[in-house]
């Protein structure tokens, strides 16, 4: 994967010191089929969190 999806980042700026998502990652964020899977996963994760939190 090339870097065509990454905008210019000024070297040595604070923004230069972190990770930047590339095309594949950005695609998955809005890919409806994949997001349906993630929707189910997030809901399961939150349900477990809630169950663990009530005492």
């Amino acid at each position: 994967m090339g870097s065509k999806h990454v905008n210019h980042i000024e070297p040595y700026s604070p923004q230069f010191g972190t990770m930047i998502p590339m095309g594949g990652q950005k695609f998955l964020r809005t890919c409806v089929l994949w997001q349906i899977v993630r929707f189910i996963a997030i809901n399961i994760r939150m349900t477990i969190l809630i169950l663990k939190s009530h005492h």
Binding site: R29, F39, I42, M46
Partner: peptide, 14 residues
């Protein structure tokens, strides 16, 4: 296992 973060449309739906 309970501390996670992700980005995506799914979170909008949530």
């Amino acid at each position: 296992n309970g501390t996670t973060g992700e980005l995506g449309l799914a979170a909008h739906w949530v």
